[in-house]
């Protein structure tokens, strides 16, 4: 059974084409890793990983895998010409210090105000936070790339997050397999719908009210 909306490479492409040309962009663990495979080289985006790699791309045929060249999810990647490597202190100085043009992170919940919850759930006795808080707070733009609903079907785009927050009012753009949604001062503005997805489909899968494409500038 095929799921509605974009597949992961198509969803990653929706993120990739919106990244700033020539920008430095961090990719988090999970779905965001796929963005490194879908970027147009002509955009000259430089990907940063929390582990200190600055300037990598997804592996392509003919690349020689190196066990010490991995992304945030320990997936093997390749360094680009002009890459640099730093330790975690400098890598997070880059993140907190405001040098990243964007970060692409996964999420459990995003609120209508752009609050981000992506490190723990109310039921969890054990959680991992990794670099999420540093990145959410430090990057100039936070893009969330996630499934539109949780595994149990619960909407992940909500009026208010019920999960513990990672950072407040930080998310600018949400890209799910169903749509691209911008967090604006007026509310959540739908910028693009996946093929065969209607606005009503999308609203039904979303807890927070959405602004239809025609209703927003």
């Amino acid at each position: 059974m095929s799921r509605p909306g974009w597949d992961v490479p198509q969803q990653a492409r929706q993120v990739a084409r919106r990244l700033p040309r020539g920008g430095y962009v961090n990719l988090g663990i999970g779905l965001p890793a796929a963005v490194a495979d879908q970027i147009d080289p002509d955009q000259h985006v430089v990907f940063h990983c929390e582990n200190g790699l600055i300037g990598y791309r997804g592996m392509v045929g003919g690349d020689d895998p190196d066990p010490d060249v991995i992304d945030a999810g320990s997936r093997q990647v390749a360094l680009i010409p002009g890459a640099a490597v730093v330790g975690h202190d400098l890598s997070f100085a880059i993140a907190r210090g405001g040098r990243l043009d964007a970060t692409v992170l996964g999420a459990y919940q995003v609120s209508a105000d752009g609050d981000l919850a992506n490190w723990t759930t109310p039921a969890a006795r054990l959680s991992g936070v990794g670099g999420a808080m540093d990145l959410a707070l430090g990057a100039k733009q936070v893009i969330v790339m996630m499934r539109h609903r949780a595994r149990d079907g619960a909407p992940k785009i909500v009026q208010r997050c019920s999960y513990p927050l990672t950072a407040r009012r930080c998310v600018g753009l949400v890209v799910t397999e169903l749509a691209v949604i911008e967090v604006t001062a007026d509310g959540l503005a739908v910028r693009q719908l996946a093929p065969d997805i209607t606005f009503d489909d999308l609203q039904n899968a979303t807890d927070a009210p959405l602004l239809a494409p025609s209703a927003t500038p």
């Binding site: 975690h88 997070f92 936070v129 990794g130 670099g131 540093d134």
Partner: peptide, 15 residues
């Protein structure tokens, strides 16, 4: 016992 801390904070506390 676990003390969970953000990764950048771990690096900077060590530094």
């Amino acid at each position: 016992e676990l003390e969970l801390i953000p990764q950048g904070t771990l690096a900077e506390r060590l530094r």
